[in-house]
Design a protein around this nucleic acid. Structure first.
Lengths: 232, 232
DNA sequence: TCAATCCTGACAGGAGGCTGAACGGCGGCG
DNA sequence: CGCCGCCGTTCAGCCTCCTGTCAGGATTGA
């Protein structure tokens, strides 16, 4: 079962697209998805709000004129809540004031419709770069997708809930995908130093992880430790 | 012009980085530059080729998936031209076949994305050292590639799982490739002193190793011991 | 050819790993 | 305040794979 990290650079972002125009929306969605980002496409402010309540995005593409209000409102809410997710606003050609207001409200960049899709990529890249390492990479392990930043795991189209310790184990294994991580290392990661745990806790959590993620995603290296990824 | 090492040990190398990913590229460039190497960063195969026409590098960091083709092609061209410059390939974790192909095509080591920058330094150091007379982190024995660091073995396009003792035997033989290692030495390595093993254990493990790696990779020197490598 | 040496399939025993079950603690909720 | 459900931990039994041993056969060198 292959492990694929799409972390670096432009790839693997979780992108929220808020746009009510079907044609434009489809084009953007497909273009962004082709660059290996995960795209959630919402057509109303309300839907976007719902989504934002549960998902942490790496980037938001935000149309300002929406059926149920102005994107500016949403943007303000986000910034008021302290969310730093980069936002690129999409404005029509004649809405200069919108654009300025958007930037003032906390947008990172803007695109004027109609825009070239290449231009979109370039702006996204620029914005992402500005955020340095703060982007949220998505790690693929076989069919399982893991987003370390917002601690979410998806498999078979479903989100999988992991408990704290389960996540800690997964996270430790993911720190160096493919490398062998000893039980001791995992234990250390779980019990911030010296807690005297004398049992098979790690084994139990590996077992539980496998049950949730699928049997093959955590590989046992007998007498040594565990490894994320493909069996020999 | 095979290997160019500049006097100051690990420092002062001229490094060619071929990587199209902006973020990763920047990180690697900065990290390597910080270690006092001169870094040329190319984002396409074509640019890299142009550079290689005029510059002799001390080390090449080569991404395999590039916009204008596979890094493997470049690697093959280099080796076909007799260039011995050490090459470390950078692969995504799901691209196991790439990795193996890379090693087969003459790469000296590989790094799996995402890698720790410290890990990068370590591998660079190891590869450079090897060219100063020491051992490569990835050892080629005929068609078999062995990576002592992560305890993995590849042969015939497949990864091979070795048990603890099997690995220990292989490791001992690998400590001095080509040299003859006596059974007693191997036994010592296996059984931390004085364990009273009175049987042909070593022979058995050699047999098991041969079964997995291929018959010819461990050579018997009758009455003396064993040796890694092709038959004389 | 003979003796020494080495190879390898088979096997029993055991260590290490897996996992279902159970229990106590903790926080949320009515 | 009491109940409930989730989480973390422990334990025990099961099972897989590793391991050392042996014996018979193959190979080597004299």
């Amino acid at each position: 079962m292959p492990v694929q990290l799409i972390a670096t650079g432009t790839s693997g972002l979780r992108v929220l697209l808020v746009e009510d125009n079907i044609i434009l929306g489809e084009a953007v969605r497909d273009h962004v998805a082709a660059a290996d980002h995960a795209v959630d496409w919402m057509k109303t402010l309300e839907d976007a709000r719902v989504s934002l309540r549960t998902v942490t995005y790496g980037l938001i593409l935000l149309d300002l004129r929406l059926p149920d209000g102005s994107g500016i409102a949403l943007l303000r809410e986000l910034r008021a809540a302290g969310t730093a997710t980069p936002v690129i606003i999409l404005t029509a050609h004649d809405q200069i004031s919108d654009r300025i207001e958007g930037l003032n409200s906390g947008a990172d960049d803007y695109l004027v419709k109609p825009f070239d899709l290449g231009e979109l990529s370039a702006r996204m890249l620029a914005v992402i770069r500005r955020y340095g390492g703060n982007i949220s990479p998505v790690i693929h392990v076989g069919e399982v997708k893991i987003s370390p930043v917002d601690r979410r795991v998806f498999a078979a189209g479903e989100e999988i809930g992991l408990s704290g310790r389960e996540w800690a184990v997964l996270d430790t294994l993911l720190a160096r995908p493919g490398a062998i991580i000893s039980k001791a290392q995992i234990e250390e990661a779980l019990y911030a130093f010296g807690s005297e745990i004398e049992s098979n806790t790690v084994e139990v959590y590996v077992s539980r992880l496998r049950k949730k993620l699928g049997r093959d995603h955590v590989v046992t290296v007998r007498g040594v430790g565990y490894r994320i990824g493909a069996p020999a």
